[in-house]
Amino acid sequence: MAWFDRLRQGLGRTRELVTLGAVRRGDDWELGWDDLELALIAADVGAKLAAEVVEETKAARERGVGFREALEQALLDQLERDRTRRKLRRVGFDLDVHRSMVPVRGRVIMVVGVNGVGKTTTIAKLGRYYQGHGQRVEFAAGDTFRAAGSAQLGVWGERLGITTTTGPDGSDPASVAYEATQKRKVSGADLLLVDTAGRLHTKHNLMEELKKVRRVIDRADPGEPGETWLVLDAVTGQNGLEQARRFHDAVGLTGIIVTKLDGTGKGGILLPIARELDVPIRFIGVGEQADDLQPYDAAAFVRALLDLGAPSGA
């Protein structure tokens, strides 16, 4: 599968690190515990969780489980937060996320994140993905702060043939969101993707503004937005956890999208985030093309990370 290879390619450097100093034993390989811990830290997993993964791998290893399997399981336990899915996986089911469309609750998805993580590009890719699944999609260019922020989404909208609601630069993002939400009700489109301006989670007023955008969407169409997704850059270090935490507190996240997993970053910060917030990871961005946004699958991610080959049956 092309996307899987691409992800594997992207994660190549981590793989090199993990396999660095690894001792091969037939099909399996083994790594010194210290080396494993360092490799995990180098992937931005964080010192605390890295130590934990090492402990878990160690414990499984003592029970006689092969090194590779033990490590894969330890990582998977951190990344697969859904208990049912985890159980299914343990008893041998293969969960193929590529077969069906990533489901969306409600009709409006609000996309948030700090500056420069790739929110607008991700929205374009999401539009393409859902369009490909036969959904009628609309965009709301809610980034009215950045110069030409709404123009950027407008260009994407034109390329993809998606209607984009825009407001003038510097206008109230809530009013753009309101207008777009009402328009969607009239047009009956399946999905509205609302872009927002990047903001640092420490800026109180900007976080309040985000809450307002959310409230206003709810007013225009009660119950919406059904989904609020955080976009996270894979190069982000330990600050990513605080970002996710603060956005979660402010607007209640229902999903996370990791971008730039194309070799720039490793996205190890996903482990502490998945663990602490219990918010599912929805998509991962593995390249710059519009199709390079892929549904997230914990097992595939872990396998690519450890270079274990494509999942069977995929």
């Binding site: 931005d44 850059d233 190069v235 982000t236 970002q243 970053g265």
Partner: peptide, 12 residues
């Protein structure tokens, strides 16, 4: 460089 960059800052 983004101040929020993690371990990748060095290879970058």
């Amino acid at each position: 460089i983004d101040a929020m960059t993690g371990q990748q800052s060095l290879p970058v």
